[in-house]
């Protein structure tokens, strides 16, 4: 992501796992300025920063890098405002489907049936469709990605930064301690999320949908959902009704995206 962005970039980071992994003051592991901001304010802080850089005649990329809690929940108002105002920035949400820093509590990004420390019996609500919410703001570019497909992610970041105005990339980020699977299976988890259709990779340019190659295969023939869920401790003992709902939604989503891309919806 940083490679694609290049050196004339600033990261705006609200409270999230990146708050911790960037290094302890006064050091940072990133080679670009990192501005840590309050939990709810990634997009609002970036609005001010982008306006200031543009006022100075600078093209510096302003990139928010926020988790699902900071994006789907506490930061959604600021995100919506920044999108609506046409802010020139890239917002990347890396989504591990729970509040990771605080020890895996449910977020709006937690899928139905997943156990977290605040949904010990499995989540009873669906994952919030933030991409549809973002799409309703009609940004010039938005995409989904997954850490298991780094080249796809790299290209999407590059592409997003070639647009003026607000752009959004939603990255599924498998999380070994949170999802309760062995660390070495992270790439496999990401791939199974895509192959099962639980996560669909796509881009929207000025609203026009293009499904990315790995998800095209999933649309033709998704792998059984159980293959994705079984290795994850968070889905252990998922009830039949939740499992059935997840399967129905996958089928519906894959059909919906395929139809939209083919222009028949």
């Amino acid at each position: 992501m940083l490679k694609a962005a290049g050196p004339d970039s600033v990261l705006v980071v609200p409270a999230c796992c990146t708050s911790v992994i960037q290094g302890i003051y006064p050091n940072t592991a990133m080679n670009i300025p990192v501005y840590n901001v309050a939990f709810a304010t990634a997009a609002a802080s970036a609005s001010g920063m982008s306006a200031a850089f543009r006022a100075m005649g600078k093209k510096t990329n302003v990139i928010c890098y926020a988790g699902d809690g900071g994006t789907l929940d506490i930061g959604i108002q600021a995100l919506s405002g920044a999108l609506e105002r046409g802010t020139d920035f890239l917002y990347i949400c890396y989504d591990n489907e729970a509040y990771g820093n605080t020890g895996m509590q449910r977020s709006g990004g937690t899928p139905l049936g997943a156990r977290t420390t605040t949904t010990p019996g499995g989540k009873t609500d669906l994952k919030k469709d933030i991409d549809a919410i973002v799409a309703a703001h009609e940004p010039p570019y938005q995409a989904t990605a997954c850490a298991a497909y780094p080249q796809d992610l790299y290209k999407k970041v590059q592409k997003a930064l070639s647009f003026r105005g607000p752009t959004f990339i939603h990255v599924l980020a498998p999380c070994p301690p949170g999802w309760r699977y062995p660390t070495e299976k992270s790439v496999e988890m990401g791939k199974l999320a895509v192959k099962s259709g639980m996560w669909i990779l796509y881009e929207r340019e000025y609203g026009k949908l293009t499904i990315s190659a790995p998800s095209k295969a999933a649309i033709r023939k998704p792998v059984p959902l159980e293959e994705y869920l079984a290795p994850q401790g968070r889905f252990k003992g998922i009830d039949a009704k939740s499992l059935d709902t997840l399967k129905q939604r996958i089928e519906k989503n894959l059909k919906r995206f395929a139809a939209e891309e083919a222009g028949v919806c």
């Binding site: 050196p7 600033v10 708050s19 290094g23 003051y25 990192v34 501005y35 901001v37 920063m49």
Partner: peptide, 13 residues
């Protein structure tokens, strides 16, 4: 903020 002299601001302290 200076991209030619990148620093971390407000990180874990």
């Amino acid at each position: 903020i200076d991209v030619s002299n990148p620093k971390g601001y407000g990180g874990l302290t």
